[in-house]
């Protein structure tokens, strides 16, 4: 069997949040993967362009701190 080592794209996952009205809370609308912040911002702008957002922000996925998660101490949902 022939295998090839194709170059893989280095990238970071970014979570994308948006609100379509300034009075509404931010909502998670998806993720993008990009090699740097500028590309991530542009990807978010072009991929999630289905609405004229009042605000569109991104954050690196590994920038979030676990509060509750399956397998960690604590209970998810209403105890």
């Amino acid at each position: 069997m022939i295998t090839k080592n194709y170059p893989t794209r280095k990238g970071t996952n970014y979570e994308v949040f948006a609100r379509d009205n300034p009075e509404r809370p931010l909502q998670h609308i998806g993720t993008v993967q990009a090699e740097n912040e500028q590309l991530a911002i542009a990807h978010a702008r072009f991929v999630y362009s289905e609405r004229p957002w009042a605000e569109l922000i991104i954050a690196p996925s590994d920038g979030f701190l676990d509060c509750l998660r399956t397998g960690k101490r604590g209970v998810i949902g209403i105890a």
Binding site: A34, E35, N36, E37, Q38, A40, I41, A42, R45
Partner: peptide, 13 residues
């Protein structure tokens, strides 16, 4: 503005 951000991202990469 977003075009320039995108191109700057590719330049940096």
């Amino acid at each position: 503005y977003f075009h320039r951000i995108y191109i700057e991202g590719w330049l940096a990469a």
